[in-house]
Amino acid sequence: MNLLNFLHLGALGFSLVGMVVLDARFRLFFFRAPARAGAVMVVGVAFFLLWDAAGIVHGIFLHGVSDMDSGLLLAPELPVEEVVFLTFLCYLTMNLYTGLSRLAQRRAARATPDGHRGTDA
């Protein structure tokens, strides 16, 4: 095992940190409603892991072997990289959703100069 084994995990971790930075800067998800974000994240990751499990049971997903993987498996066919990826995917989805909601809301507020503010999505 050498540094190359952690390239994939490192890239995912780096991306995840990027999501946290965006979240902190613009107060999008965890930095806006921590408990709610935590609940969404836990359910989201559990949902995708269940999907993975179903795919693995039915022989649809197979874990490819790559020099850039750590080789750490959380369950048969389930590498640790997958869990980090799913966390990143959920975080990215929610950052995008809340960020775009805010942009849409600002635009709507500008379009009605009386400044009617709708609830933030």
């Binding site: 989201g44 995917l89 989805t93």
Partner: peptide, 20 residues
């Protein structure tokens, strides 16, 4: 389909849990 399911599931939860 992964991102489709994510976009369906996560904002639904986020909005649905706004008032616990």
């Amino acid at each position: 389909s992964y991102v489709l399911a994510g976009v369906l599931l996560l904002p639904g939860l986020w909005r649905g849990l706004e008032d616990p």
